[in-house]
Design a protein around this nucleic acid. Structure first.
Lengths: 225, 225
DNA sequence: TCAAAATTGTGTATATATTACACTATAATG
DNA sequence: CATTATAGTGTAATATATACACAATTTTGA
């Protein structure tokens, strides 16, 4: 079966940056390419758009196929930029619509599937060489992520709660913000701001481990977002 | 000449929102479609991507072809979103990468050309019915524009100087900000902020017309951006 | 020519948000 | 029981944002 057109057409793909926090560091999910071009190299998961699916659906499907990550139900895919340099793909003209998302470190069992020979998490600051223009995409996506959780820019900073367990300590919350924004925050100022922005209720439980136990909190959902 | 592929491919287009200020109101440049679908309806200028041009080049070329607007040299095209709903174009699957730009009201002589039967400026708050999903694109682009000139979000608010003449009054500047952001600003607070943000020098000239003459200023370019 | 209309220009006080900063409390570890 | 690790706490200074009203200068038209 072939498809014939009167004018040449580029291919269209979607790529998805899946960010997560593992061992207190920002990680991103990559796949190892099983086929040429760039066979064996690491790349952002993604693939070709089907004619009957929306862009975001394509992104979600490819992610599932290549990494097994399915739990995206609920977690939003944010479109952040489209890449279309003439020579970005040696196979020909390929336009790629890039998305990003954030997943909690729970549903994270990934496996290589289909034309990806492997899928794995990489710490963002020790990335392997990447296929195509994926290093650039990753850099742009990283900046977009930082903006997304910067309350003075975005107003959707509450996505961090998707990364936190039901009950969390204020240090946990601060860690998440620091990692996503990529900068250290003052403890007292953070607590003041965090508690003022999203009302919290103490669960009564505490953490154990070295150092003073931390009180655990839950979001006070008697209000809104 | 035809082009044959093993898998179906969508078409890729770019669309460009050209904003300007005319008679103290935000305007946008639209074209009247000369061919079906939506022949006779108004639409955002744009068109099909060629295989040898980058996305932004395509946007600039189509704009020139359809509206005669050429002076884009220097004025940045900002990519803000890509549209790809399955049914957004009755001709088939079309993915559209949307850009926006702002032009001063000087280089504004537009003419209908090629497959656009006419090009014209419309006040943003009295738009005609639009083809495709262009009403949605316009709405998104409008929001993006407002963010772009909101200094607490964007840091590229200095684009307003592209819309102002060399010598301008503080009221002129305030008008531009009010129109682009879509909200009224306090005169004294605006002047304080504007002058503190971009050092100005008085030219010594003044405006004439009804009311007290306004002093004209020029940006003090002994500094940076 | 003068009253009205239109527009420019000007300062202060208040509220809110942001930043800086250092020590005590409580547990685990060895 | 000393050390190490982490949690928890408040205040002052600064910067930013907001609110607000009237005098000055010109054109216009009665």
């Amino acid at each position: 079966m072939t498809y014939t057109y009167r004018h040449p057409r580029p291919s269209v793909t979607t790529d998805v940056l899946v960010f997560s926090i593992r061992e207190r560091r920002l990680h991103v999910l990559l796949i190892q390419r099983g086929v040429d071009p760039f066979a064996g190299q690491w790349a952002i998961p993604g693939g070709f758009l089907r004619m009957d699916e929306d862009l975001a659906d394509c992104a979600a499907r490819e992610l599932k196929e290549e990494t097994g990550l399915d739990e995206l139900a609920g977690l939003p895919l944010t479109q952040f930029r489209t890449y279309g340099a003439v020579d970005r793909d040696p196979r020909g003209r390929v336009i790629s619509v890039a998305f990003l998302t954030l997943v909690p470190s729970d549903h994270l069992t990934v496996r290589g599937m289909s034309d990806a020979s492997a899928a794995a998490w990489f710490a963002f600051d020790t990335l392997p060489p990447l296929a195509f223009d994926h290093a650039q995409i990753l850099e742009d996506g990283r900046a977009h992520l930082a903006d997304l959780v910067n309350p003075s820019i975005s107003d959707s900073a509450s996505v961090v709660f998707d990364l936190l367990p039901e009950a969390f300590s204020l240090s946990d919350a601060q860690n998440v913000f620091e990692i996503l924004r990529g900068e250290a925050l003052d403890k007292r100022n953070f607590r003041k701001w965090f508690d003022a922005t999203w009302p919290l209720v103490e669960t009564g439980e505490t953490t154990t481990g070295p150092g003073r136990p931390a009180a655990l909190y839950r979001r006070d959902t008697t209000g809104r977002d």
